[in-house]
Design a protein around this nucleic acid. Structure first.
Lengths: 145, 145
DNA sequence: AGAAAATAAGACTGTTTTAGTCCTATTATA
DNA sequence: TATAATAGGACTAAAACAGTCTTATTTTCT
């Protein structure tokens, strides 16, 4: 019911971690997993998916691991999430141009498609760089001067 | 993975239906269910939840049914969705101020909380009234004149 | 050359969530 | 008073999810 999968969550954690260690050596899956108390094999799975989409670059062999293949400011939350969970669709009928499952003459398909667009653009506008600069609530507070 | 439950979907369908039949008699759960090819008992469940939150008003007895208890312009998609699925939280840790499940020193909690806020405001800004006026894509097209 | 440490990927299992049904009670109307 | 509706709890089946295990491959370091 409208929740990110843990995998996607882990993906964001991993990418943020890599963003913060950009200059360092490549980070291995188990290294990242350990730092956040996550299963190492599962984290490996997640990173593999990110590598598939070229969000991270994998390096085999000992002292291998993963590194970001783009600038953190060029990676959106949407990219990471959809790399892992597949396309972000708030309902299954949003894309199916014929049938919503089977029967219903769905009256909310079009409005929900619009809502879906909005959510996509929210997720697309959030970059990993933004997620790495912590407080970031100045927009409103700054006006108080 | 970020999908509306079918129940929530059905809820939106039902509320929109009630909005379009505002002047008529009360609509029964089975009447609505039949129109969209949805299980009647399931639709009844959904409407019960909407009644709990006073989004619709229930009328017992034969020729009973449900009616909106507010203007369609005063009902947001968020209200309907959260009435049925519970609070909209993109991760389970967004509200937990202590522990994300158990272990992880979650580095994305705060950024995700902000994303969650944005999504809430998207859903909150969409009203049933808007979902009932169909095309509504003039904002950009109008500029072409 | 060979051991070690890493990624790659598929199959598999247990748990949780979701969808949907069934049954019984209650309420109001005709 | 029969009927048609809501109310609500218990229950089942199916799907999604989280996580594990195993095997193969690649690279580095000694």
């Amino acid at each position: 019911m409208f929740k990110l999968s843990k995998r996607a969550d882990y993906g964001l954690i991993a990418v943020k971690h890599l963003a913060l260690h950009r200059r360092d050596h490549a980070c291995s899956a188990s290294e990242i997993a350990e730092e956040y108390g996550i299963s190492a094999t599962l984290m490996a799975k997640v990173l593999q998916k990110l590598a598939h989409r070229s969000i991270v670059a994998a390096k085999h062999g000992s002292s291998g691991g993963y590194q970001l293949s783009k600038e953190p400011s060029q990676i959106s939350a949407l990219e990471v999430i959809s790399a892992i969970d597949g396309p972000v669709l708030i309902t299954s009928c949003v894309t199916n141009h014929g049938n919503c499952d089977a029967t219903q003459r769905c009256s909310v398909k079009e409005p929900l498609r619009r809502v879906n667009e909005s959510i996509l653009s929210v997720l697309d506008s959030v970059t990993i760089a933004q997620m790495s600069e912590d407080p970031q609530e100045p927009t409103l507070v700054a006006l108080k001067t």
